[in-house]
């Protein structure tokens, strides 16, 4: 394996090229499939394998930017992107992100806020994950039942469109201007509601120092009422733009290892294409279920990291890394296997 070790001149370390491609492939699959950047996987992974944290974040952002191009292209082909909503998301999220990061800077003056941020992160991930599981195991069977007994009911209509109660209620708040998003099948929603949602997700991104793709996708599904596949594609536009911005600024600050990002992107581009293609074969609720499971494990990893901060036991730090990497690897494998089996089924049925 030593033959695959390459010298990374900027980071000043030797690193296994195959490992970089594997990390890239794994995060690419997840990024293309869930509409997220996957920074929460790559950054700790690179750090665990010997990258300085400053280089890990910057290199990761450069990779996300590159991989998102392919994923956006693929989702565009499948009609999964609402550009109008995506553009609104980018502009509003940036404003929210600035407010969030300014809040953190102000709080930092009062003391260490890392602890609080991790609790918020953990709370958000676990709540979101649990709600998605609740939606899949409780709300979905109920709405399917009512669809069977009362075909003309509101819930049956919502279910067929993939719309839920929260988004339907939000759609009724018709404060002008009311806008429509034909690409997403949204006939009328107050622009203020949309702006507030993106401002909030942007604020959380800035506050917690994360890319935000994992919040935008569920927000688009549960609060605005987008079909899951369109939410994934549209979320990826925000990821693409913010990562492009991050890539440039981090590189200008000398925090991107170009060679590592380049090699990682080879795997990530392939992974992103495979992940995006898999969306075609898996129903929206299936994607949401997998996403819910993944973020619950991510919350577990953050909780384990929190134990490390409290106790100082390095065991918990290693465990956090193992949980995170294990989840990412398992989830990528599940998506690829599903892609293989479903595409084979489709071929056989032709």
């Amino acid at each position: 394996m030593d033959i695959l070790n390459i010298y990374l001149p900027v980071a000043g370390i030797e690193f296994n090229a195959l490992l970089l491609i594997a990390i890239g492939l794994c995060v690419g699959v997840l990024g293309g499939f869930f509409g997220v950047g996957g920074g929460w996987i790559v950054t700790p992974a690179l750090n665990i394998f010997g990258f300085h944290m400053a280089f890990a974040i910057g290199t990761d952002l450069a990779n996300i930017f590159g991989q998102s191009i392919g994923a956006v292209r693929k989702h565009q082909k499948m009609g999964n992107i609402d550009w109008k909503l995506g553009m609104i998301s980018i502009i509003t999220s940036v404003i929210g992100l600035e407010i969030g990061s300014e809040t953190i800077i102000s709080l930092e003056k009062a003391g260490d806020v890392g602890f609080i941020v991790r609790w918020c992160y953990m709370f958000l991930l676990s709540t979101l994950g649990c709600y998605m599981l609740y939606d899949y195991f409780v709300l979905l069977p109920k709405s399917q039942e009512s669809k069977g007994t009362d075909r003309g009911s509101d819930s049956a209509d919502q279910s067929s469109k993939g719309r839920n109660r929260v988004s339907s209620r939000l759609h009724r708040i018709a404060i002008p201007p009311v806008v429509s998003f034909p690409a997403s099948g949204i006939e009328g929603v107050s622009l203020w509601i949309v702006l507030l949602i993106f401002l909030f997700t942007g604020f959380l991104s800035g506050f917690m120092g994360v890319g935000g793709g994992f919040m935008i996708m569920p927000a688009l599904v549960y609060l605005i009422g987008l079909p899951t596949a369109v939410a994934i594609g549209t979320s990826l536009i925000t990821v693409l733009f913010t990562a492009a911005y991050g890539c440039f600024t981090y590189a200008a600050k000398g925090r991107v290892e170009l060679l590592a990002a380049f090699i990682m992107l080879i795997g990530a581009s392939i992974g992103a294409q495979l992940g995006a293609t898999a969306v075609r074969y898996i129903k929206g609720y299936g994607i949401r279920l997998l996403f819910g499971i993944m973020i619950i494990f991510a919350a577990l990893s953050v909780a384990t990291e929190q134990f490390y901060k409290i106790t100082g036991e390095h065991f918990f730090q290693s465990l956090a890394g193992i949980v995170l990497m294990g989840t990412a690897l398992t989830m990528s494998a599940v998506i690829l296997v599903k892609l293989k089996t479903e595409s084979a089924k489709e071929k056989n049925s032709r």
Binding site: I69, F248, T249, G254
Partner: peptide, 28 residues
Amino acid sequence: YNNDRVMYAVVVTLVMAVLGTSMAFLTD
């Protein structure tokens, strides 16, 4: 990297964009 960080940032961003697009095309 040592002498011109802005140029380094421009090169990094462009390399990522070009590689991302070409790889997407090839994988497709």
